[in-house]
Design a protein around this nucleic acid. Structure first.
Lengths: 346, 346
DNA sequence: CTGAAAGCGCTTACAG
DNA sequence: CTGAAAGCGCTTACAG
């Protein structure tokens, strides 16, 4: 385990100054081509790598992005919402493509996350990812902004909040999938999912649902909205309540796929056929949804695109270019559970 | 966007030297309690954070771990294997608990991963994660070792490979789940999954399967082993081949849950009932497996524990403590698809 | 095109 | 318990 080579070692071997080595290794056009190639060859032979700490310290720039993942405190400690895991994957990839490193960290709302990374110069900017009530973090976001920290937030645009956000059009997603059910002749609807300000994503999906119904002349009775945080159990409980109260609608619109899983389970339990007796749709298009029986009609958020947008926007902000909120369109994924998908044999 | 405070600013305000500030902020017992508290208060008020680049450069230590995720080049570019995503989650958590930052990066086999991180002083050690044929990376692992890089690898122990590994006992998992099927009276078996040296995990599962059968007096006919990389389509294709050739066994053992998904789909397609006509089991316990109909009996790898072990072992290696390979036990998850799980209504 | 020099912001012997 | 000083390994004006 030999000591690591430094730029001075290379300078010594190449017979040039250390400054020239530094220039050559950063492909500076200032240095003579032959000298440059000679230095780069020596560096390769010695397995030399520029010390990032030194170079970052000097350049006052880290070429690193921090991803802060907020977790739903109610969720099982050992599991991350598959949707965010998928976002994490695409952000990782987008960073790699942009030549940035990615520092990943889990956070809960209490900790001092707002300052940690960029303040300590470990990252040039921050991506905030997580469902939840951004009202709670409002003051922290404001503080981030005041510090001049570069950050991008995943979530709905909200004029109340500082900073730029990238999100998916939850209202449109809720509207479109409800519209699809209406086109298939379903008359009586239930919505399973929270509809409150502390769950802005779900709220927007719910509003899209309600508006699609009223555009079709159907007034949604709020008795048919069932609260559910995004867990499978919540969906199960809600569907059981419908069954027990004999209030089963033609179609159940769920605020997330996980909720829909629970609804499907309760219906299977009660020998109620999907989609023949009741249609069920979800939201998120998590992996599971393609494999349930029947497979789940849902709304997809393009996580790959989302990751790229988050990274691109953050990099623009870091470079002091103008940035603005972006709302991606939601995409319907038609499968069997709505009764209008491909034949049930597959 | 004011300039960031440095330790000199704090020293100036507190009326002490910069050295004392540095000591106070690292909780050094060398500094007078009142002075220390005063300095820490000022630092808090100024929202001061130690510059990590400077401190790492000086200390020659980064308090950061790099996670290299190798991807199956055959897999869909936009998706990561859910199992590794789950590992990523638990590693993130374990790092946070240990006070380390985590640098995440995707790699393919061609790139110069073996040197990047630790050599550039961005990380103190490396976790290597990914299925695959470690034979291919043997030379790279050797080079890592020669450089004195600290690393831990996820995967089976293998005396041929340098470095320490943490893995799950794939042989035992394959043995146990087969044993469970045998106990339920199944006589004729098929195995779907690659059984070659380039997929050591699958190979070990297969060997466990074969040995469990022969311990029960059943000789496995290799005609009943179907190759399949770990995709749903491969499982579908293999099961269709069985059906077309009228070689359907009593029980199908799949090398992964994803493969089992495809097998279930092919059987559903052909109106063959699971588990009544044929039992099916998988491996991995990915989220999907709990929600299929019937739900899938499978083998679980404790990803939470695995993440902790990987991080703990790496930290020990970094601190020059002795480390050794560890093989975690595999755990059976009994559900419905094997015919011996809870009642099919749930 | 190249070199000598300053300095990024810390930590830590060394001396008191 | 505290301070003055060196130095971690680079990058980049500055001067030639």
């Amino acid at each position: 385990m030999k000591d690591k080579a430094t730029s001075f070692d290379i300078a010594h071997i190449a017979g040039v100054s250390q400054s020239t080595v530094s220039r050559a290794l950063s492909d500076s056009p200032l240095v003579n081509k032959q000298t440059r190639e000679k230095i780069q060859r020596i560096a390769r032979d010695l397995n030399y790598k520029v010390d990032k700490n030194a170079s970052n310290l000097r350049k006052q720039k880290s070429n690193t992005i921090a991803l802060l993942l907020f977790e739903d405190p109610t969720s099982d400690d050992s599991m991350i919402n598959p949707f965010f895991l998928s976002m994490l994957g695409s952000i990782t990839r987008a960073c790699a493509n942009a030549g940035y490193d990615l520092l990943v960290s889990f956070q809960n709302l209490e900790s001092d996350w707002h300052a940690e990374y960029e303040d300590s110069n470990k990252a040039d900017g921050i991506i905030l990812l997580g469902y939840g009530d951004y009202l709670d973090y409002r003051t922290k976001l404001t503080q981030l902004e005041e510090q001049g920290t570069h950050f991008v937030r995943w979530g709905a645009h909200d004029s109340e909040h500082p900073g730029v956000s990238i999100g998916c059009d939850n209202y449109q997603g809720g509207y479109d999938i409800t519209r699809h059910l209406l086109d298939n002749g379903h008359k009586h609807y239930a919505f399973v999912g929270d509809a409150g300000s502390h769950a802005p994503e779900f709220m927007a999906r719910y509003l899209g649902f309600v508006d699609a119904l009223s555009a079709h002349g159907i007034t949604h009775d709020s008795d048919n909205q069932y609260n559910a945080i995004s867990t499978e159990d919540d969906g199960f409980t809600a569907a059981q309540a419908m069954i027990n109260d004999a209030r089963l609608p033609d179609a159940i619109v769920c605020a997330s796929d996980l909720i829909a899983m629970g609804v499907l389970r309760a219906l299977r339990h009660a020998n109620i056929m999907v989609p023949d007796d009741v249609a069920v749709v979800g939201y998120d298009n998590i992996t599971v949804s393609a494999y349930t029986t029947p497979s789940l009609t849902t709304v997809q958020q393009n996580t790959r695109r989302a990751g790229e947008l988050l990274v691109d926007t953050l990099l623009k902000a870091i470079n002091s270019e103008p940035v603005e909120d972006f709302l991606m369109p939601a995409e319907l994924v038609i499968r069997q559970s709505c009764g209008a998908g491909p034949a049930s044999s597959d």
